[in-house]
């Protein structure tokens, strides 16, 4: 009896996949195509759309607010990613050295990234509140002057990055811990015999071997960070003075507050291209260092 994928089996598999294919076509592929199409048109509320060529993209290129959003998004991305990767690696090394992880500790670690971002925004609103927040009080103990962290144009990005790091650094740590645990122990014994001191072992062996894992974590975080929306929408709505106006916040504002769908589509496409670009670059990097 011949059992490898017969034509009948292939038919059955196609039927199994069909509902998901149809749903995807309807809810994912069609919207993407529609958005591409819209990005070349104006779609004023209540009127027929009109082809405008690259006008929407040209408008983006001329818009200082768009360039501000690019700057905000990238700054937020770089700061957050740096904090999460270094913090996550540090935490993972601690967990690795502790050998075993009590269930309570793991519960604590997974809690932040399971809390709805809206709730995260709410909890930090009260903690960072200029008049009653615990943050200012704790900082005052160290002699740091109180500040309205989320209302300060200079501080809002680092503050939001810190909030996101609170939420996702443990996630990065758990991924890196998995990477650490899969490193071959004999390589470390070889390093011992080669006489590498512990500090050098970290820089010359552990870190290079962790790079693929770190790249994976970076890709996962990139996808979320470049699209940063929820926490900012809850806490600052892009303010003050557009200082936290990320691309996604700006796009939402254009699309669903100004209802300029064509322009918003062009923005969404630009953002998507950006995410794809960065992810592809990171993925190429990951392949290059996949020892």
């Amino acid at each position: 009896m011949h059992i490898s994928a017969s034509s009948r089996q292939r038919g059955a598999l196609a039927v199994l996949a069909m509902p998901a294919v149809l749903f995807t076509a309807m809810m994912v592929v069609f919207p993407i195509l529609y958005t591409i199409w819209l990005s070349f048109r104006t779609a004023p509320l209540g009127h027929a759309t009109q082809f405008v060529g690259f006008a929407n993209y040209a408008q983006l290129a001329d818009s200082p607010q768009f360039w501000n959003s690019i700057k905000v998004s990238l700054t937020l991305y770089v700061i957050s990613l740096a904090m999460q990767l270094t913090g996550g690696t540090y935490l993972a090394l601690l967990l690795f050295q502790a050998k075993r992880m009590p269930a309570i500790l793991r519960s604590i670690l997974i809690s932040p990234f399971m809390v709805p971002p809206v709730v995260v925004g709410m909890m930090f609103l009260i903690i960072l509140d200029p008049s009653l927040g615990a943050a200012n009080w704790v900082l005052s103990l160290f002699g740091i002057a109180p500040s309205a962290w989320l209302a300060s144009p200079e501080w809002v990005i680092p503050t939001v990055a810190l909030i996101d790091t609170w939420q996702w650094m443990p996630f990065v740590a758990l991924i890196v811990l998995g990477g650490l645990q899969s490193l071959p122990p004999s390589v470390y014994e070889a390093a011992k015999i080669d006489g590498a001191p512990p500090r050098l072992v970290f820089w010359r062996i552990t870190l290079p071997l962790l790079l693929p894992t770190l790249a994976t974590a970076a890709i996962l975080r990139t996808v979320d960070l470049l699209r940063f929306f929820d926490i900012i929408y809850v806490t600052t709505q892009g303010g003050p003075l557009n200082a936290s106006d990320t691309l996604n916040i700006y796009g939402f504002h254009i699309g669903f507050e100004l209802f300029q769908f064509g322009y918003a589509s062009a923005l969404a496409m630009t953002l998507t291209a950006m995410v794809f670009g960065v992810v592809l670059a990171l993925n190429r990097l990951r392949r290059a260092i996949d020892w």
């Binding site: 809810m27 994912v28 069609f30 919207p31 993407i32 529609y34 958005t35 819209l38 779609a43 996808v223 699209r227 929306f229 691309l247 996604n248 796009g251 939402f252 699309g255 669903f256 769908f261 918003a264 589509s265 923005l267 969404a268 496409m269 953002l271 998507t272 995410v275 794809f276 992810v279």
Partner: peptide
């Protein structure tokens, strides 16, 4: 791609 595209990309056509 569903994970990478920003929510607004889907939301505009869906909304319309």
């Amino acid at each position: 791609s569903a994970r990478m595209a920003p929510g607004t990309l889907f939301l505009i056509p869906w909304y319309i």
